[in-house]
Design a protein around this nucleic acid. Structure first.
Lengths: 345, 345
DNA sequence: ATGAAAGCGCTAACAA
DNA sequence: TTGTTAGCGCTTTCAT
């Protein structure tokens, strides 16, 4: 306790107890049983260690053992309910395994992703969870060269196992429910316009969702015009512009809007906030993502909540099995009706 | 590049180039100018390093230099807009300084806070940012014993400098604005009931906010009954119950509600979601925290957005100045009117 | 302008 | 049952 300026090491404890450094090491790292250290010795060492505020230097241990006990995760952003829920689940799983979780956001920037992963590798993370990366395969190359196991989440890669949401299925039920809502609250016509805003056309998830959207629209409406679909970016600002374009095109708000992610929704709302409240009497929104507050707006918002716990649990299982083949596991999401607030997670 | 199973080290590069390990180290760590390494030598070494996919082992470096380049931050939770925005700002500041940010959530659990901080210390973090801790001073004791600089955010401590929001001021203007809204949308009477829900009575921020709430209520209404104030927990579930109690007591929804944080708001909404929509025609809500979606509900929600960037910037400045005296810096928050969506951060 | 060598704190053979 | 020693990969005197 009196040690103010330098950390206590096993050598300090060694001197204090008269035991050798290796005995101290064993006593303090939990391996003493298998090293047949006398229980009394071990207990005494632990006692002294406690009295002196000893904590192991995990850098030294990591250097020696060539593994750090750190598990890394990269996410596109923190300020998003979906990703932060993943962070939460990730920490829980890591903690349950006695590992130290390190989460870094990479802002959907491939260069930042690369830099961050290199940094994490330099800190000798034992494994890496890659969430929604723009280029998971590039990361796989980095990881492969240093034998770090990797699992992708949210967006799949071809060089590492992936756990993703069954986006086609989710977008289908969301679109169907949205159309039902449009029928109920909308203008009433079979030709009430329905739009799609948000996401990258080229990313897998968006692609699946658009496919499902189009398919359902085809089945129930005979189709949807291409210019009713905006998928240029995950940047909220882009969606603000898209919403404006949509309203110009439509001469007002449409009866139905499929919003691809809460990112896009934020952008759309930024535009909506300028419109008079009466304009919203007929619109229904389907949002592919869940946010508790969004379910409680002044027009119906149907949401899809991805099953984050299960995704993360699955990811850890795959990791523990060696993360070998790059196979894709799909998890089904849940539909959340407007003004419904499921238990927090 | 061909190195599959083991990481390239400076010794590999040393052999490959014929230079000594120390020269390689200097060339690769950027200290070569001051060591008067010939530029040609340095460049060649860097070239070879690049070709072989060399990345430094930061654990080894950290062990040797006794500082890791890691900066730690603990937050109560990830799944909250305010905290995740802080995470975002923290990462930005850390990155700008070439440091690696490590953010861990501690779930408002003092024991978890202690364990996590100990772990971070074991990884030799260079400094620690403590957000909304239940017991910042206990953490200060841990940090002091190993000479780690600490700054508290959101909730102040007495043993390390703190950067917090000017909660009294923020809660005053929020209450005033809420009363204005109640006057406009409420039943019309001077005696429209106004309630307060959320937070811990004993924590500094809640205390300040309740004080401000009471003061304004006194000034404008002559006071507020004690049983109109619920401050038992940050757990959304507690707020669900509080909302129910409130409505029982009131025989319906009150005209005004001061909600202390989005955590509480989530809980309140969970109860609200069971009520018929018409019931909400007269209620106004003031929420001490900002969430983009919450500003867009079917009744007016006035919010306070804490100035996260400035708080974090200030925290880093204090850290860089040595984080000496435990003085408290207060930052003023911003009022956000209903249906207003400021730029994302 | 560069090399040799020590050592950061720990663990794991190998001895005893 | 315990001690001795080497070495993880790096930086940093001190030599040269």
């Amino acid at each position: 306790m009196e040690n103010i300026s330098k950390k206590t090491t096993i050598y300090d404890i060694s001197k204090l107890t008269g035991a050798s450094p290796s005995t101290v090491s064993a006593a303090l790292s939990g391996t003493w049983r298998s090293r047949r250290i006398k229980e009394a010795t071990a207990l005494k060492i632990q006692q002294v260690a406690r009295e002196n505020g000893y904590t192991p230097n995990l850098q030294a241990r990591g250097l020696r053992k060539a593994r750090s006990g750190l598990v890394g995760m990269i996410v596109p952003a923190h300020t998003n309910r979906y990703f932060s829920t993943l962070s939460n689940a990730f920490e829980a799983e890591a903690r349950a395994r006695g590992l130290c979780p390190v989460i870094v956001s990479t802002l959907r920037d491939p260069e930042e992703e690369r830099r961050t992963v290199e940094t994490l590798i330099s800190y000798a993370i034992d494994s890496l969870f890659v969430v929604g990366a723009t280029n998971p395969d590039a990361i796989s190359d980095l990881c492969a060269s240093v034998n770090i196991k990797q699992v992708n989440l949210d967006l799949p890669g071809t060089k590492a196992p992936s756990v993703i949401t069954d986006d086609y299925w989710g977008a289908r039920i969301l679109t169907q429910e949205l159309l039902r809502s449009v029928k109920k609250h909308g203008g009433g016509g079979e030709d009430d316009p329905v739009y799609f805003i948000g996401g990258f056309q080229s990313d897998y998830a968006t692609d699946q969702r658009i496919k499902a959207f189009k398919d359902v629209m085809k089945e129930e409406r005979g189709g949807v015009p291409d210019n009713h679909i905006f998928a240029n970016s995950y940047d909220p600002n882009a969606s603000t512009l898209d919403a404006e374009t949509m309203c110009k095109l439509e001469g007002g708000l449409p009866s139905g809007l499929f919003v691809n992610s809460t990112f896009a929704f934020e952008g759309v709302l930024r535009y909506f906030s300028k419109l008079p409240r009466e304009d919203f009497s007929k619109i229904s929104v389907g949002c592919y993502d869940y946010d508790p507050f969004a379910s409680f707006m002044h027009f119906p918002v149907i949401m899809v909540r991805q099953n984050v716990q299960e995704m993360m649990k699955e990811a850890f299982i795959i990791m523990e099995n060696g993360a070998l083949e790059p196979k894709v596991t799909e998890i089904k999401p849940t539909l959340i009706q407007p003004r419904t607030m499921p238990e927090a997670r």
